[in-house]
Simulated scan of single mutants.
Amino acid sequence: MVRELVNRGHRVTYVTTEEFVPAIETLREAVQHVAHDEELFTRVTDMQQNVREAGGAVTAAQAIEACLRDS
């Protein structure tokens, strides 16, 4: 698993133990399950645009938190 991540260009700064392999495999399966979902892709793209328009992730998170506090 670590070798695969490194081959994909990820920097691995910790040792992945066998304890985490099931979680990683579950995540991989979930990503593969939605990888070709056009509706989800459109919603994610829209969300990314909204985050950029809000001024970035931190500002967007602050705006969301403010809405949650006010509701």
Score class of each variant (00 low, 15 high):
45 T>N: 03
61 A>S: 06
29 E>S: 12
32 Q>M: 05
33 H>I: 03
24 I>G: 06
26 T>R: 15
60 A>G: 01
23 A>Q: 06
41 F>P: 02
24 I>S: 09
12 V>P: 00
6 V>G: 08
41 F>N: 15
67 C>I: 07
58 V>D: 12
40 L>W: 02
11 R>P: 00
54 A>M: 05
68 L>K: 14
54 A>P: 00
33 H>N: 14
69 R>V: 03
71 S>A: 06
8 R>P: 00
12 V>Y: 03
2 V>Q: 15
36 H>I: 04
66 A>Y: 03
26 T>D: 12
40 L>G: 05
36 H>F: 04
41 F>K: 15
35 A>D: 12
15 V>Q: 12
61 A>G: 03
33 H>K: 15
4 E>I: 08
39 E>I: 02
66 A>K: 08
47 M>G: 02
7 N>C: 10
4 E>W: 01
38 E>K: 10
1 M>G: 09
27 L>Q: 10
22 P>H: 06
28 R>Y: 08
12 V>A: 04
20 F>I: 11
37 D>N: 11
60 A>F: 09
9 G>V: 01
28 R>T: 13
56 G>S: 11
53 E>Q: 07
64 I>E: 09
68 L>I: 12
20 F>G: 08
52 R>F: 04
40 L>A: 05
20 F>E: 14
59 T>H: 12
43 R>D: 02
11 R>T: 07
38 E>V: 10
21 V>W: 01
52 R>D: 07
13 T>K: 14
49 Q>C: 04
51 V>F: 03
65 E>T: 04
29 E>L: 12
58 V>P: 00
67 C>N: 12
49 Q>M: 07
58 V>H: 13
15 V>K: 11
71 S>D: 10
67 C>E: 15
22 P>F: 01
66 A>H: 11
40 L>E: 04
4 E>G: 07
63 A>L: 07
61 A>W: 01
3 R>Q: 11
70 D>R: 12
20 F>H: 14
68 L>E: 07
71 S>P: 01
13 T>P: 00
41 F>V: 10
29 E>V: 04
8 R>M: 08
20 F>D: 13
36 H>C: 08
40 L>Q: 02
37 D>M: 03
45 T>E: 04
10 H>W: 11
13 T>Q: 14
62 Q>I: 11
21 V>Y: 05
7 N>L: 11
53 E>V: 00
48 Q>A: 13
49 Q>G: 05
34 V>L: 12
6 V>S: 11
22 P>G: 10
45 T>H: 00
38 E>D: 09
56 G>M: 06
22 P>R: 07
67 C>V: 09
25 E>C: 04
63 A>D: 05
19 E>D: 09
21 V>L: 12
26 T>A: 15
35 A>L: 05
21 V>G: 03
29 E>W: 04
38 E>L: 09
29 E>R: 14
31 V>C: 08
4 E>F: 03
10 H>M: 14
14 Y>V: 14
44 V>I: 12
24 I>E: 11
28 R>W: 12
20 F>C: 11
7 N>K: 15
6 V>N: 10
67 C>Y: 10
43 R>Y: 00
